[in-house]
Simulated scan of single mutants.
Amino acid sequence: MNITGLISAIIIGAIIGALGRLLLPGRQPIGILLTVIVGIVAAIVGTAIAQSVGVATTSGIDWIELVFQIGLAMIGVAIVAGLKARGRRGRIER
């Protein structure tokens, strides 16, 4: 992966992570860095799922692939926020 691909992955990951976080109801106690990381992972895994299903290569915008990516970002943000909130409760109770 060259520098252009890396920068593109970060930008797309940030957008996917932000969309996943915006669509997830409630407040998520995670920072922007974790949101971007979750978005990058969701974009990569969502693309792999779309390719395995056979919907990744269409003319124009790949809407189904985008839905996979945002859905995975929502799941990822929920998991990370839950783990982070669980860690905070454990510290407060002690």
Score class of each variant (00 low, 15 high):
L34V: 05
S52E: 14
R89F: 07
R88H: 05
G90I: 02
R21V: 01
L72T: 01
V80A: 09
A81H: 04
I30F: 08
T4C: 15
Q69I: 03
S59H: 11
R27E: 13
A9S: 13
G17A: 13
L34Q: 07
I70C: 07
I70Y: 01
I15C: 13
A9D: 13
I11D: 01
M74Y: 00
T35N: 03
G87T: 03
W63R: 05
I16Q: 07
F68M: 11
G26C: 10
R94H: 05
I70P: 01
V45F: 14
V53Q: 10
G90C: 02
A48N: 14
W63H: 07
G76I: 04
L6Q: 06
T58E: 08
I3M: 12
A14N: 00
V80K: 06
R94K: 09
R91C: 00
A18T: 04
T58H: 01
D62A: 15
A9K: 04
L22C: 12
L22R: 12
I3R: 06
G26A: 14
A18P: 01
L33N: 12
A81D: 11
S8W: 09
S52P: 07
I7V: 15
F68G: 13
I44N: 13
I15M: 11
A48D: 15
I7N: 00
Q69D: 11
L6H: 09
S8G: 03
E93W: 02
N2Q: 05
R89W: 02
T35L: 10
I70G: 08
G20D: 11
T35S: 13
L33W: 12
G17M: 02
G5T: 07
L83F: 05
I12W: 12
F68Y: 15
I37Y: 04
E93L: 15
L22E: 06
E65V: 11
E93S: 14
G60W: 07
E65N: 13
L33M: 07
A73T: 04
I11C: 09
R91P: 08
I92T: 09
I37G: 09
V80I: 03
A81Q: 05
I30R: 11
V67A: 08
A48W: 12
I11A: 14
V45D: 06
I32R: 00
G13T: 10
E65D: 10
T4M: 14
V55I: 12
